[in-house]
Deep mutational scan, measured.
Amino acid sequence: ESETFDVELTKNVQGLGITIAGYIGDKKLEPSGIFVKSITKSSAVEHDGRIQIGDQIIAVDGTNLQGFTNQQAVEVLRHTGQTVLLTLMRRG
């Protein structure tokens, strides 16, 4: 069981404050995608409180990250504006 949710964030001096990890899993058993690996102290993400380590980032400002490499996803996140809309999925 999984839930998908949107989080809109405004960057602070730390930026968004997440590091991400790309993961290619076994299609049947484990998900592939871009996941939140860590959250920086005092960052926008930590202050917001809704995003957790292990959440999958589905889209950034409407750009679907399906099939993106870790590096491609980093580039998408790097080129966002001051306000960012993240679409995430959390597995229950």
Rank of each mutant, 00 (worst) to 15 (best):
E1M: 14
H79C: 13
T83W: 01
S2A: 12
V84C: 07
T10E: 07
K41S: 11
A73E: 01
E75S: 08
K41Y: 04
Q72A: 11
R91F: 07
D48G: 08
V13Y: 12
D55K: 00
F35G: 03
L77N: 02
G81Q: 07
N70F: 14
L16R: 04
A21I: 06
G62Y: 03
R78F: 06
I53G: 03
R91G: 12
G81C: 02
V36M: 04
E46I: 08
V7K: 00
Q71E: 13
T87M: 01
A44W: 07
T83P: 02
I20G: 03
S38I: 00
I51D: 00
I58R: 01
M89V: 12
K37P: 02
L77W: 05
I58G: 02
K41C: 05
A21R: 13
G54L: 02
Q71W: 06
K11S: 07
E46A: 09
G15E: 09
T69V: 02
D55F: 00
H79P: 00
L86H: 02
Y23R: 14
A21C: 12
T19W: 03
I51E: 02
D55R: 00
G81E: 07
G81N: 09
T40D: 11
V76M: 15
R90H: 05
Q82G: 11
G81D: 07
L86S: 00
T40R: 14
D61N: 12
S2C: 10
N70H: 14
N12C: 09
T69A: 06
K11I: 04
I18E: 02
G25F: 06
N64P: 14
R91V: 05
I58H: 02
S42Q: 11
L86G: 04
S2D: 10
A44H: 04
Q82Y: 04
A73C: 10
V36P: 01
I58F: 02
E3G: 11
V7P: 01
I18V: 09
R91I: 08
G17E: 06
H79R: 11
T4D: 05
E3L: 14
N12W: 05
K28D: 15
Q82I: 06
G54P: 03
K37D: 12
V76L: 14
V36D: 01
L9W: 05
I24D: 15
G81A: 03
G92T: 14
I39V: 08
K27V: 09
G54K: 03
G17S: 03
T87L: 02
D61H: 03
L16N: 03
N70C: 15
T10A: 08
Y23H: 13
V36G: 01
T83E: 08
K41P: 14
V84H: 02
V36L: 02
L9R: 01
A59L: 01
G67H: 11
T19E: 14
T19R: 11
I18R: 01
Q56Y: 03
E3Q: 13
I58L: 13
Q72R: 09
E8L: 12
K37Y: 04
D61R: 01
S32T: 15
A44G: 06
S43R: 09
A59D: 02
N12F: 05
D6H: 12
G92N: 15
N12Y: 05
R78P: 00
F35M: 02
K41A: 12
H47T: 14
K41L: 05
Q71C: 08
L9G: 03
E1L: 09
L29G: 12
T80R: 03
R78H: 08
R78A: 10
V60E: 02
D26G: 11
N64C: 12
T69K: 04
E3M: 13
L65E: 02
D61L: 01
G62I: 00
T10S: 08
S2N: 11
L16D: 02
A59F: 02
A59M: 07
I34Y: 10
V36T: 00
R91Q: 14
